[in-house]
Simulated scan of single mutants.
Amino acid sequence: MIGNNNLNFPKIETDRLILKEIKVKDAASILNIFSSEEVMKYYGQFPMKSIEEAKNLITIFDENFENNKGIRWGILLKEENRIIGTCGYHNWNRKHSRAEIGYELSMDSWGKGYIKEALGAIIGYGYEVMNLNRIEAVVYPENKASIKSLINQGFKKEGVLEEYAFFRNVYQDLIMFSLLKKNWVKKQ
């Protein structure tokens, strides 16, 4: 169990990042990231328009953690002490030892290797702490950067899920990727 009832929210540190609990005081940073059309076009929702929407999302992240349904970290860039994105797990199925991974970054942080660094850390957490056997990711076929990030972590493409989700008022095809624990190569 990872929820707040049994364990404090885990903080993970990498070379350039701190993965930390997202608090209501971080709502302005969350709004900044989630209000971008470019960031949100592959997130499956329309861009946020208010600080209240950001606070509601933080509440959802908190509830998922407290109820052992998932965990979402804020990605804090150490050198600037600011949140540049989020990453974590949702749709956690403990019976089958699997969860879906997700992440996004502010546009000014794209192409700098931050997702690679964050994913390496949370994949390890998923296998070593959450006892996952399978980590899944569903990605828009057009989201080439995300696909590249997953493949670089060892994820394998399983296939296209036709009209799998109803995002932004349209049925959307998504590609299913997975990484099995037995195929995971721990990054040093």
Rank of each mutant, 00 (worst) to 15 (best):
Y103L: 05
K186I: 09
D15G: 10
N81Q: 12
L7K: 15
P10Y: 06
L31D: 04
T86F: 01
Y164P: 02
I122E: 03
V185H: 11
K41I: 14
S146A: 13
I75K: 04
N93W: 01
K23E: 14
G102A: 11
R94S: 12
P47F: 02
D108C: 01
T86Q: 07
D62G: 00
K112V: 02
G44E: 04
V39Y: 05
I58Q: 06
K112T: 02
G126H: 10
A99C: 12
E142S: 11
S36T: 03
V24A: 10
S97F: 13
R134S: 11
L105W: 12
M48R: 01
S50K: 07
E66C: 07
L7P: 00
K95Q: 13
F155Q: 05
I71H: 02
I101D: 10
I122Q: 04
K186Y: 14
A137L: 05
E80Y: 12
N32T: 10
Q172M: 11
I18G: 01
V138W: 02
E53K: 09
E53I: 13
K95Y: 07
L179Q: 07
K157D: 10
Y89W: 08
E104Y: 08
G3V: 03
G113N: 03
K78D: 08
N143I: 04
K112G: 02
S50R: 07
S109K: 02
V160F: 00
R168F: 03
F177T: 11
S106M: 01
E63L: 13
H90I: 07
I71R: 09
L161M: 14
S109I: 09
K156A: 08
F155H: 04
L7M: 15
H90G: 14
E136R: 04
Y43S: 13
I115Y: 04
S97A: 14
S36Y: 03
R82A: 05
N131R: 06
F65A: 05
Q45S: 08
E128D: 15
G159A: 00
L179I: 15
I84D: 06
A54N: 11
Q172G: 01
L19D: 07
F61A: 01
I12F: 09
G126M: 06
V185S: 07
E37T: 11
L132V: 05
R168Q: 14
L132F: 03
Y114V: 09
P10M: 00
Y140D: 15
M130V: 10
L17Y: 10
S97C: 12
N8R: 11
N169G: 00
H96C: 06
S35W: 00
D62F: 08
F177G: 04
L174P: 09
I147R: 15
M48T: 06
I60F: 04
D62H: 13
A145P: 11
I51W: 05
I101F: 05
C87K: 00
E163G: 05
N91S: 13
G74T: 10
A165Y: 03
E162C: 08
E128F: 06
R94H: 07
I115P: 03
K182L: 07
R134K: 15
I30Q: 01
R134I: 14
E128H: 03
T86C: 09
I83N: 07
I58F: 06
D26A: 08
V138H: 07
K95V: 14
G126Y: 05
G70R: 03
